[in-house]
C-alpha cells in the first residue's frame, strides 16, 4: 500500500487552512482539511486517510470518524469518476426532479446510490442544495447544473464521457 501523504501543493494548502485559526484550535480546520484530503486521495475518505488527517491535526481518529460520518459531502466509499447528485426536495420535486432522477437511472442503468459497472458514474439523490429557483438541478463536481431537462442530461453524460476519454 502506498504511503498516504500530501504532496507539496497539498501540503501548502493544508498549512494555509490550519493557519486560519488561533493557536491550539487546529481542530477547527477539520472540515476543510477533510475536503482537501478527499480531493487529494481519490475522491473518498478511507480509514487510512482519516487516520492521517487525525495525525496531522493532532486529534483522535474517532474525532475524525465522527465528523466524516456526520456530513453528507464526505464519501466513505469509492465513487464513480462523475458523481451526479440530484436534488429531490420539495421545490425541485415541484419542477419535476422525480422524472429527471428516473431518467438518469434509466439512461445509466443504475439506481440512486449505485455506481455504473465501468466506475464512470455514481447517481445519488440529495436534499436541498439551494438552487430551488433553477430546478430541477444537480451538483456535478464543484458546480451546479441547473434547469435540467432530458436533453440536458444527455448532453451532460456525453460531456463526461468525452472528458474521461480525453483524460485517459
Amino acid at each position: 500500500m502506498t504511503m498516504i501523504r500530501f504532496n507539496d501543493k497539498q501540503e501548502a494548502e493544508f498549512q494555509r487552512l490550519v493557519s486560519r485559526y488561533p493557536e491550539g484550535k487546529q481542530k477547527s480546520a477539520l472540515l476543510p482539511v477533510l475536503h482537501l484530503a478527499q480531493d487529494s486521495f481519490g475522491g473518498w475518505l478511507s480509514s487510512e486517510v482519516m487516520d492521517y488527517v487525525a495525525d496531522r491535526l493532532s486529534i483522535k481518529p474517532i474525532e475524525v470518524y465522527e465528523v466524516a460520518t456526520f456530513y453528507t459531502m464526505y464519501n466513505l466509499k469509492p465513487i464513480g469518476k462523475y458523481l451526479f447528485e440530484v436534488c429531490q426536495t420539495g421545490p425541485c420535486m415541484l419542477r419535476g426532479s422525480d422524472d429527471i432522477i428516473a431518467y438518469i437511472g434509466e439512461k445509466l442503468g443504475i439506481k440512486p446510490g449505485q455506481t455504473t459497472e465501468d466506475g464512470m458514474f455514481t447517481l445519488k439523490t440529495v436534499e436541498c442544495l439551494g438552487a430551488c429557483g433553477y430546478a430541477p438541478m444537480m451538483q456535478l463536481g464543484k458546480f451546479y447544473r441547473e434547469h435540467l431537462t432530458k436533453e440536458k442530461v444527455d448532453q451532460i453524460i456525453e460531456e463526461c464521457r468525452r472528458n474521461a476519454a480525453a483524460n485517459n
Binding site: 480509514s47 483522535k60 481518529p61 474517532i62 474525532e63 470518524y65 465522527e66 460520518t69 456526520f70
Partner: peptide, 20 residues
C-alpha cells in the same frame, strides 16, 4: 485518554461505534 468509540452517522441512523 484514548476515546476510541463515539457517535457516528447522524439523525435516526446515528450510532455508537468505533468505525474500524
Amino acid at each position: 485518554k484514548t476515546r476510541e468509540h463515539g457517535v457516528l452517522d447522524r439523525g435516526d441512523h446515528a450510532e455508537i461505534a468505533t468505525f474500524i
